[in-house]
């Protein structure tokens, strides 16, 4: 137990574990450049007619690019810091999803139901 922890601390102190390679950084950079260029191109040229479809596609690209950054630039993996950083990340992501979807969902419905003028009052009971 103590020998294992000591070895881990040793590795971190000398920075062996948490670093990428030249190849890793370059892969991340090329992937990010592609994943950035495509959404900009989609919006600038309006390649997809449907705006909602475009929005969904560029959000998918953003999610993929965030994962690319996490892996190649931030060197996230399930093993770093004994799994604690991944645990913290998952917990944070759950909170972020709750905050974002919760806010958008609730406030959208409040807007839709409260905004005067959007409803035809004659249809009210």
């Amino acid at each position: 137990m103590s020998a294992h922890n000591h070895a881990e601390g040793h590795g971190h102190a000398h920075g062996g574990a948490a670093h990428g390679s030249f190849r890793g950084y370059l892969t991340g950079f090329v992937l990010s450049a592609i994943l950035t260029a495509i959404p900009f191109w989609l919006v600038m040229t309006g390649a997809i007619d449907n705006k909602q479809a475009t929005a969904i596609v560029i959000m998918a690209f953003a999610v993929v690019q965030i994962v690319v950054h996490m892996i190649f630039f931030l060197h996230m993996n399930t093993g770093s810091e004994g799994g604690w950083s991944m645990l913290a990340l998952i917990f944070t992501l759950i909170l972020v999803v709750i905050v974002l979807t919760g806010s958008l969902w609730v406030m959208y419905h409040l807007n839709a139901n409260m905004m005067p003028g959007l409803h035809d009052m004659r249809e009210m009971p």
Partner: peptide, 14 residues
């Protein structure tokens, strides 16, 4: 940089 991905997608492009 990760946060900026969110900004340019969510704020500017959308």
């Amino acid at each position: 940089d990760v946060v900026w991905i969110g900004v340019f997608t969510f704020v500017y492009l959308m």
